[in-house]
Amino acid sequence: MTRLNLSLAALALLLATASLCWNPVGMLTLWQRSPEAARAILIELRLPRALLALAIGGSLGLTGAAMQGLLRNPLASPDVLGPSTGAALGAVIVAYTFGIAGTLAMALGGIGGALAALGLLLLLSRGGASTATLLLAGVAISALGGALTNLALSLAPSPYALYDVLFWLLGSLADRSLLHVVVALPPLLLGCALVLSGRRGLDALALGEDVAASLGVDVAALRLRIVIGTALAVGAGVAVAGSIGFIGLVVPHLVRPRVGGRPGAALVPSALAGAALLCAADLVVRLPVAGHDLKLGVVTALIGAPFFLWLIVRQREVIEP
């Protein structure tokens, strides 16, 4: 367990270092020619990029594992059940409808939107919903959030808002700045800390909400803590990097067999594996593919979706109650 954490942390740091050292020959030549430009690339562009990949990937893995544990459902995750869509909607409304520019405003809008989507989801799944109910509620919330986002963009003063946002929503960590790090990291880390503090409670939830309550867990407080923590982390992440799917869904499944299936014990390794996976995906998008710029959300979906389909086929008897 600790060895698992150590090796995952080492992997994440290795990939983050690779992100900093991308194209080393080119960087060295540039350093000789123009050290100032090389330094700006390292400090102003690559450092925030690597830090955001670690933090956002980590928060996606963590909140995915926490949502699966909380809802006792292996198909739960921020991008499937609506919080990511809600965060995008919140950020779009703040920035394009009210015209409040700036990373901080978008982050706050994202957190508010994620909170609203999660609140709606819990309301719809009150009293222990089945997998089908939960997923249908999530699909409905995601569809509603997506439609409202498009509506807000259509009503925005700038006719090109939709085009502007489309690229952001596909997910990217390119050309972010240290300001993004400074704005996004505090709510993101606070959210992660809140979620992590529910670790023992999530373990108890493995046997159901009533058994957890009989074991002394305040289930309502635990749920609130994880919902607020997830909203903080996902909202801040989406506002900075757009929608990055499948990490929250897939990573807990990779980790679970190595922690004996315990939902609470899966949290930390899921965070570390999520950080490593997003760093790796962010390296893939920088590979030159016919000169075109790949989008991060596209890459994580291309890796994650087939893997997830394989998981469903393999675990069908587990998922179907």
């Binding site: 102003e44 394009y96 409040i100 502007d164 952001w168 700045s177 240290l178 300001l179």
Partner: peptide, 11 residues
Amino acid sequence: TSLGQSWLQHP
């Protein structure tokens, strides 16, 4: 507000 225009203000 435009994410595109804010790109031009990157430090």
